[in-house]
Nucleic acid binder design. Structure first.
Ligand code: ZN
Ligand code: ZN
Ligand code: ZN
Ligand code: ZN
Lengths: 167, 167
DNA sequence: TGTATATCGTTATAACGTAACTTTTTTGAT
DNA sequence: ATCAAAAAAGTTACGTTATAACGATATACA
């Protein structure tokens, strides 16, 4: 039984922001939709700042927009439907999808201490959970694969013991 | 690169409730803890009724206990720490772990229409996401693997079209 | 008996998410 | 240009999920 193959994303040079944005606009246009200013703002922040919560994104709209929850959740739903972002269910945060993976499953590794998140692309043809699900009669499958753990970095707040930074 | 192997759980005769309970008590005892009445009540309901939310569980305590959120979340945390239950992050519900899997990763397939949930045991030694996470320096790994989809059953509310039950 | 630890009670509030309805903007045909 | 339809955004009001913080009891066991 063959299985998921995971490959790290964006480990080398991170793609240019403007290029990502214009590709995202193209994806939206292809779906008959448009990237309005708020949508673009959310997407940009998720591209640049990593996992953020709905209210964190909203807070950045001070004045720019009405800054109320439905705006945030509508925007996030829109971006999710295009595959441009995903929700990290285990931490209720949202994260930008690498453009190479907008239409394939992904996995995430999340540090439970500091939130550091690693993105992994996942080969759908080799992911046996999917096979199992289909064998059980399920279709329209959508994966949530999140590994939480402790990143081993020296500056991870959970690692105080290792670095000797007092109690 | 080898990968996860998923096997369905409890497809044959479901184990006896009393036997599950006494095994659970033994697991608690081994950890220097005890299954108090509320803990046992939550565990029983999750064994018998499938995925339930914290407030659903709480509601069943009418009179029996103080029935306030911290009681529920403390109880759920306790049972999770023993591995007796898990949280379905994608639906914010809790589900009993088969005793054969208290200390190994699991995957779940959840119908987004009717909530039908299938449990899958997962061989940790063959789960490549774990390998990837470790290679990145993560440890103390904990998996959230949830596939959401549409179960194909005739009585699934999302399947009205297939069964011709009006609009 | 006393001290530590485990467990439970209670109040209050934070964090996350949605329903339902209105208004504005955009689009595209006449 | 004008108007109708569709898309997007605004607004109010809630619902649901989860935690902080502190106090009271109970239990274990030296
Ligand atoms: Zn930026
Ligand atoms: Zn960390
Ligand atoms: Zn029962
Ligand atoms: Zn279903």
């Amino acid at each position: 039984m063959p299985d998921p193959l995971f490959a790290p994303t964006e480990n080398a040079a991170e793609p240019d922001l403007e290029s990502q944005l214009s590709q995202a606009r193209a994806i939206a246009r292809k779906a008959g939709k448009t990237l309005t200013p708020v949508r673009e703002y959310f997407y940009k922040r998720l591209l640049c700042e990593g996992p953020l919560g709905a209210y964190e994104l909203l807070a950045g709209l001070d004045g720019v927009a009405s800054a109320k929850p439905p705006t945030a959740y509508r925007t996030l739903e829109f971006l999710q439907e295009l595959g441009l972002i995903r929700k990290l269910q285990s931490v209720s945060k949202y994260i930008a999808t690498p453009l190479s993976a907008v239409s394939s499953p992904m996995a995430f590794v999340v540090c439970r201490q500091c939130g550091l998140t690693e993105k992994l692309e996942c080969d759908p043809a080799q992911t046996s959970v999917f096979d199992r699900a289909r064998k059980s009669g399920f279709d329209q499958l959508d994966a949530t694969i999140e590994i939480s753990g402790r990143c081993g970095r020296d500056d991870c707040p959970g690692d105080r013991l290792r670095t000797g930074r007092s109690t």
